[in-house]
């Protein structure tokens, strides 16, 4: 499969009173055409900032975002604006991401109103998009407050599809929804990918959801990717101690499920002036002296499986 998006050395730092907050501390990954890359991690790990930086909704501090061969971070503002047609965003909170004073049809049509597209067939286009995302056409003149969360999120999806994008970043699109509605939206997102050949980055804190929807999964911790591989492997053979702990912490909805749980001590350290060495060292039970000195690089350990941990690297060296 062709690579659609390649991210290299992406960093985003925020200046704060306490010092430089390293929200994204240099990440590398690529997304192939038509695939879904899941990004998973706990609050403050930098997953949302990564998604936003890729679309330049926040300006990255450093790095390259290569979309179909061109570094879009080098684009001037005007060109970036034009380019945005190809990459869209679905936001987490369908209550905050829709303008309460705009009707559903105006919200969905806003992207093509801005680009002066579909002028003569504006209404047909809106109705077509509503049909695609499963919204009744009766709602065309309603306002967001009249809709429940699931329907609002469908409006958010319709708006993201308005300009026929190639690529969509979905940032926690189902986290605010009830489980029965969550399943409807997940199916919709999958169906649209099949129908329209879309490429996704799917960001979530919920590993079960990420595993379900993604082809490959990147696990983030404190601004770095600690492990990336296909979604089957990450759940069957996680290599990084953080991935292992994260997986073992998920309660499984089955009776009598007995697993050994790895309980992590303490909380995630502050992303302001993170300690040198491995970012996970302070909570890792396998920590070695060298972990505190130099950070392990994200290194391929098997085909398509990369992990940033000395434990795994050493093992693979020994075998050679």
């Amino acid at each position: 499969m062709e690579t659609l998006l390649e991210v290299r050395g992406l960093k985003k730092y925020f200046p704060t009173k306490g010092g430089l907050l390293q929200a994204v501390g240099g990440v590398d990954f690529s997304v192939k055409k038509g695939e879904t890359l899941g990004i998973v991690g706990e609050s403050g790990c930098g997953k949302s900032t990564t998604g936003r930086a890729v679309c330049r909704l926040v300006e990255p501090t450093a790095g390259e975002v290569i979309f179909e061969g061109e570094d879009i971070l080098a684009y001037p503002k005007s060109k970036m604006r034009e380019f945005r047609k190809h990459m869209q965003f679905i936001f987490q909170d369908p209550f905050a991401s829709l303008d309460p004073r705009m009707s559903i049809s105006d919200i969905i049509a806003e992207p093509f109103d801005i680009f002066r597209m579909y002028k003569s067939e504006r209404e047909e286009r809106v109705l077509e998009l509503m049909r695609v995302v499963g919204l009744s056409r009766k709602l065309v003149n309603s306002f967001p407050h009249e809709l429940d969360g699931g329907r609002r999120q469908r409006v958010g999806v319709a708006r993201a599809l308005a300009l026929d994008p190639k690529f969509i970043v979905c940032d926690e699109p189902v986290s605010a929804l009830d489980v029965s509605i969550q399943a409807q939206i997940l199916n919709l997102i999958q169906d649209l990918q099949d129908k329209l050949g879309l490429t996704y980055i799917f960001i979530s804190h919920d590993l079960s959801v990420v595993k379900h929807i993604s082809d490959r999964v990147a696990v983030m911790y404190l601004g770095k990717i600690v492990e990336i591989t296909d979604s089957k492997t990450i759940f069957q053979q996680p290599e990084h101690p953080y991935t292992q702990a994260l997986l073992s912490a998920i309660p499984i909805p089955r009776y009598g499920e007995k697993r050994e749980r790895i309980i992590l001590e303490g909380d995630v350290p502050s992303p302001i002036d993170p300690p040198p060495g491995c970012i996970f060292a302070s909570r890792c039970k396998h920590v070695m002296p060298k972990c505190r000195e130099k950070a392990p690089a994200l290194t391929e350990t098997a085909s398509g499986h990369s992990t940033a941990c000395y434990l795994v690297h050493d093992v693979s060296e020994e075998e050679e």
Partner: peptide, 20 residues
Amino acid sequence: GSIPNIAEDVERLTPIPGLM
């Protein structure tokens, strides 16, 4: 049927139709 289960492989969820 609505919840993705990390321990199982399901291609497609079977949501409850309709709304609360």
